[in-house]
Design a protein around this nucleic acid. Structure first.
Length: 682
DNA sequence: AGCACGCCGACT
DNA sequence: GTCGGCGTGCTC
């Protein structure tokens, strides 16, 4: 709490919200400091970074004596009012400390510099020429009817008054619409912000923007940049030098003094939700930011999130359909393989014979096949036939995965890794066997089944080294690969011209998950995967999407066959409404971590007891363990809160979370807790 | 979250 | 005799 006072400034300081010290702290300052100024202030024995903020409501008891601001970094232009509003909104909505969030979304390098170092960097940036001599503007491709129609709508003020959902199938040319919309913003002298779900997707989009806008300053913002690059790009955006900012979810917090357009590509992608710390949704914040700044926001997807889809139904978003592929190519034909019909004992070992045959035909024709299996490693678990030992992780409630190439057992959750034992560690039996299969094994099997083919694998293990993803993709593009095996990272965005067959090897996993969003995610993934085939219109007619499934009668597959997102979405929304789930209800998840499950559960129970659920208009569910209950020797439990009213849920949380502090002492072994607003997985 | 203070076990 | 374990408390 703080009051306006001569010589006094309110500062948002990096302190977690669940401590008594939260919100704004007061400091003395001789010179008046504008809100948004970066400062360092004393806190206890430390010097911590902070941001000057506008004073909050009057405090009844101001501290008797104020400590002075240590230093103000006045070389850096203060963070603007729009940026502060965004951060303040996000902190309140996601229930985090203002200063904690504000400083977490600034480039980490910024806090290390003093004012003179900062001034030097800024001077260097100001001196840099604004990009090389303008290359000739490229010839613009002719627009399809749907692209032209979408742009016509976007060109009118009414068309931009609401968030726009660009519902475009893979290959329909959404990117061209982004480019034209960005061109409009640039022509108005404004900046465009383009968000993509994954770092992997930035280079190709960056290339297209760079080609289209020669002479304009384009910067990227994502966590794979070096600290110095990230600071430089961030500063270029903050100073208004960058015209185009392209980045992953963290870029939604970029400081953009001339913001004129926000694009969220693949808006349905779960990667837009931060899964640690402040668990914000960059897509939702993008919509808020655009609305607050009065600029258009463009959400693009072939399979929109049901949240966005429902908003279209309610008339809050405008949908612009783009359902034709450029060049008139058809979507690939979907072929289901009923795994129940395969001979017993063969299902786990090989692909369905008809799929194998189809792949062989592609190889003979010089075309490529893409096989998706969402499991890294050779086998998800090792098993001893004699004593039933399995390769569990000693630190997590999960199996350690057998990686054959480097002969290790690796936990994909905590990273614990050991050499594969020669014999069962329990009983000494030499006959320990892998169960199930991952991408390594699939690649091995394919190589044996298709000795004439060049079989490559692309997953997080093969792309660990910097640049290796781009290099492997280049090999695929160059036609040096016949069959490409990989995880879902293959399904996203990459434009494979020679691929005419895509197969999901084990599509079902998600269907049996307890997560209510599993069908939505699976449908999106399969549609996206299908979009990888037949990007070349000439081949589109012959291209196929194969799905191996144990539940061929699931309605999801019927919709997939027809590439019918609309009916799938309608059916899902009906189920969600009946069950009182998002987007018809709002969720928050309180997660607790402790030495023992009992401590975590006890804390959650006590926390629940603080709320009068009936009066609050909120339903509180009993604590349950998450999918991986123990992670790195920490036991975890979570408790779901649900309300049909977002406001009621927000009100409850705001009053409740500060009280949880007082519960800490009563639960021995409780390590920490956190709330996740609008959780994606429950 | 840091970083202190503070009170009990095995080491040079 | 100290070094150090982490419990509890404070930070404008």
């Amino acid at each position: 709490m703080t009051a306006s006072w001569p010589g006094r400034v309110a500062v948002a300081v990096e302190t977690p919200r669940h401590t008594s010290v939260s919100g704004l702290l007061d400091y003395a300052s001789e010179q008046p400091l504008a809100p948004g100024t970066l400062v360092r202030v004393p806190l206890g024995k430390r010097d911590v970074p902070g941001l000057v903020w506008e004073p909050g409501p009057e405090a009844e008891a101001a501290p008797p004596v104020l400590r002075p601001v240590t230093v103000a970094l006045t070389a850096l232009p203060p963070m603007g009012a729009d940026w502060r509003a965004l951060v303040a909104f996000a902190a309140a909505y996601y229930q985090r400390g203002l200063g904690e969030l504000a400083l977490a979304v600034l480039p980490p390098e910024l806090r290390k510099l003093d004012d003179t170092q900062l001034a030097r960097r800024l001077k260097k940036l100001a001196g840099a020429p604004p990009a090389a001599a303008a290359a000739p503007p490229p010839a613009l491709p002719e627009l399809s009817e749907e692209q032209a129609a979408a742009l016509a709508v976007l060109g009118t003020p009414e068309g931009r008054a609401k968030p726009v959902l660009l519902h475009g199938v893979t290959g329909s040319g959404k990117t061209e619409v982004y480019l034209r919309a960005a061109a409009d913003a640039l022509a108005r002298g404004e900046q465009a912000l383009v968000l993509v779900p994954e770092i992997n997707l930035t280079p190709q989009l960056e290339a297209r923007f760079a080609e289209r806008f020669p002479g304009r300053v384009l910067v990227s913002l994502h966590s794979a940049l070096t600290p110095a690059q990230r600071l430089r790009h961030w500063l270029q955006a903050h100073l208004g030098q960058a015209d185009l900012v392209l980045g992953t979810r963290l870029a939604v917090f970029a400081s953009l003094p001339r913001l004129g357009l926000i694009v969220v590509d693949e808006e349905h992608d779960p990667s837009f939700k931060q899964q640690e710390g402040a668990r914000y949704s960059a897509r939702d914040l993008a919509v808020w930011r655009a609305h607050h700044a009065g600029v258009p926001v463009l959400l693009g997807s072939a399979t929109p999130s049901l949240e966005s889809w429902q908003r279209v139904q309610e008339g809050r978003y405008r949908r612009l359909p783009m359902l034709q592929r450029i060049g008139g190519g058809a979507m690939p034909r979907v072929r289901l393989v009923d795994m129940n019909l395969l001979p017993r004992g063969t299902q786990e070992r090989v692909l369905a014979p008809q799929l194998l045959e189809a792949i062989e035909k592609r190889i003979a024709a010089g075309e490529q096949s893409l096989l998706l299996l969402n499991r890294r490693g050779y086998a998800p678990v090792l098993h001893c036939g004699a004593c039933a030992w399995k390769s569990g992780c000693p630190h997590c409630s999960a199996w350690r995965v057998f990686h054959k190439l480097d002969r290790t057992l690796k936990c994909h959750h905590c990273g614990y890794s050991e050499r594969v034992p020669r014999a069962c560690p329990e009983c000494g039996n030499l006959d320990i066997a892998p169960i199930g299969r991952g991408t390594e094994k699939l690649q091995e099997q394919l190589a044996a089944l298709l000795p004439q083919a060049r079989v490559a694998r692309l997953d997080a293990d093969t792309t660990r080294a910097a640049g290796s993803l781009q290099q492997q993709l280049a090999e695929v593009h160059a036609g040096e690969v016949d069959v490409l095996v990989g995880t879902q990272m293959l399904a996203k965005g990459h434009d494979f011209r020679r691929v005419t067959l895509v197969a999901a090897i084990n599509a079902d996993g998600a269907l049996f998950s307890s997560d209510f969003r599993a069908p939505e995610r699976l449908f999106a993934l399969l549609m996206q995967a299908a979009g990888r085939a037949g990007r070349d219109a000439e081949q589109a007619a012959r291209s196929e999407m194969w799905v191996q499934t144990w539940s061929p009668t699931h309605p999801l597959f019927a919709a997939l066959r027809k590439h019918d997102y609309d009916s799938f979405a309608a059916a899902q929304l009906e189920e969600r409404q009946a069950a009182g789930l998002p987007p018809f209800a709002h969720l928050a998840l309180l997660r607790a971590e402790a030495r023992t499950a009992e401590a975590a559960t006890g804390f959650l129970h006590d926390a629940a007891a603080l709320i009068d659920a009936a009066t609050a208009g909120v339903t509180i569910y009993p604590p349950v363990p998450p999918f991986v209950a123990k992670l790195a020797d920490v036991e975890r439990m979570q408790m779901l809160l649900e309300s049909p009213s977002r406001a009621a849920l927000q009100r409850t949380l705001a009053g409740w979370l500060p009280q949880l502090n007082g519960l800490r002492g009563a639960h021995k072994g409780l390590l920490r807790w956190a709330v996740d607003i609008d959780p994606l997985a429950i």
